[in-house]
Structures are given as C-alpha cells and as structure tokens.
Computed example of a mutant assay.
Amino acid sequence: MAKIPDQPQDIFVPLTKDYLKAFGKDLISLMLYGSAAGGAYVKGKSDINILIVLTPEGINRLEDGFALVKNWKKRNVAMPRVMTKAFIESSLDAYPIEFLNMKNNSILIHGENVLESLVFNPEDLRLQIEREFKGKILLLREGYLESEGSARPVRQLISRSVMAFVSIFNAMLYLKQAKAPRNKRETIIEINKVFAIDAAVFMLCFDIREGVDKLSSTEVIDVFKKYLREVEKACHIIDSL
C-alpha cells in the first residue's frame, strides 16, 4: 500500500528519480508549491502540489508521465501543473496572482528555480486583484441570499471562500512592496497594518473554517456581514490605487 509521506520532503528523492527516468534532459525543473511548501502540510489531508517544467520536446510526450501521475496520486501528490518556461513568461500578465503565490510558497526539488526571478507588472497585478475581489463579492452576496439567513450554509460559505483572500491579500502586499508572510494569520495581521483591513473578522472566519469557534447562529451571521463589508472595503482600496 502506498505510504502517505510524513513530510513532503520525504518524497523528493524518489519523485525526482521517477520524473528524470521519464523525461531525462527534457525535465528543466521540479518544484513543490502551495501550502505544503509554506509549512501548512497536514499528513493525510493536504495535497502535495508539484510544478513540472519541461522543454517543448518534453511537453510533446506527456504520455510518458501517465503511470507516474497515477502512482504518485496514491501518496497524495496532486495532478501536477506542467508548463514550459515560455508558457510561464507569457502568462505573467494574465495570471500574476497565481504565479506570485507560487513564487512565495515554493521549494526547489530538482533543476532550475524557474520562479525565483519572476517580476510582476504592478498594473497587471492590480487589475487581477480588482477582478478577483469583484467576482468574489458577487459570489458572497449570492451565497448569502441562497442561505435565507440560516447559519449553517453561511458557515459553509465562509469556510469555502475565506482562504482565497489570503492569496489576494499577499498580492496587495506585493504592490506595497511588503514581504508576504507564508502563514495565513500572519498575512491577515500584515494586511491590517498596511491597509487597515479588520484582522479580527478574518481570524474569526479562519476559526469557523477550522471548526474551533464557539459562535452562536446569530453571531455567525454577524461575522459574515462584517466579512463581506471588509472584502468590499478592500475592493474599494485596490480600485483607488
């Protein structure tokens, strides 16, 4: 039976060996990214996210990775993101938040660190932040209407949505040239310092997501309303930059 690793680093050597065997010199880079790279890995619960960078020749023979993906999935390695260097470079204007957060939370496993030198255009980043905020505000409003004011679906709405704002807030900090912390709660503290967003509301949302809060139904609804107001406030801030 495939063993779930105690830590992501436990699989680095065999993972590298397998991908080198499959792609050889066409394997430019193998990187861990996401929560597992940021110190938030929980054995048996967290996926292990891998970025694979191949040459154009390697991309044209993805079928060589079929068996690897299937086998490593048994050890909680998620479906890898497979790219070329040219794809990354040409995507920074369209997906700056995603690549910024990959850069901030990544560990080199093998080869070239293709994320280390990435630089992001501030206006591209600001535009995507605004777009993400406005889309999520609409979803939060729709979810609240659908809940009909019942606390249970509102709890679920908070739990599903709150983690996405960590990535967006990290991007806002980048615009102000502030170093983004890896820990989600530290990110909220920093965003409070730089943009005066209410940290306490987001801390309560994290508690709800983690199932450690002691809030009544009425208090959950109140937290949601404050949460939505703070997201709207953040959207106004980014719109004015």
Rank of each mutant, 00 (worst) to 15 (best):
R155A: 01
Y144M: 09
S147A: 15
R126Y: 05
P153F: 01
P122I: 07
G143C: 01
L118G: 06
L139T: 06
L145I: 07
E132L: 13
P153G: 06
V119F: 04
V162N: 05
E142H: 04
L118C: 07
I137G: 04
K134L: 12
L125T: 14
S117P: 01
G135R: 07
L139K: 14
A151F: 07
I129L: 09
S147P: 04
S159G: 11
E146K: 13
G149K: 08
L118E: 11
F165A: 02
L145C: 06
Q156V: 05
P153M: 10
L138W: 11
Q128F: 08
E142L: 10
G135I: 00
V162S: 00
S150A: 10
L125I: 08
E148W: 07
L145P: 00
G149C: 02
R155H: 04
S159C: 02
E123I: 11
K134P: 01
E132H: 11
E148G: 01
F133E: 05
F133A: 00
L125D: 04
E146T: 07
E148N: 09
A151W: 07
K134G: 08
V154Y: 00
Q128P: 06
E148R: 13
E148V: 09
S150K: 15
F120H: 13
E132C: 08
V162Q: 08
I158G: 00
R141I: 07
E148Q: 10
I129K: 06
D124A: 15
K134Y: 15
V162P: 05
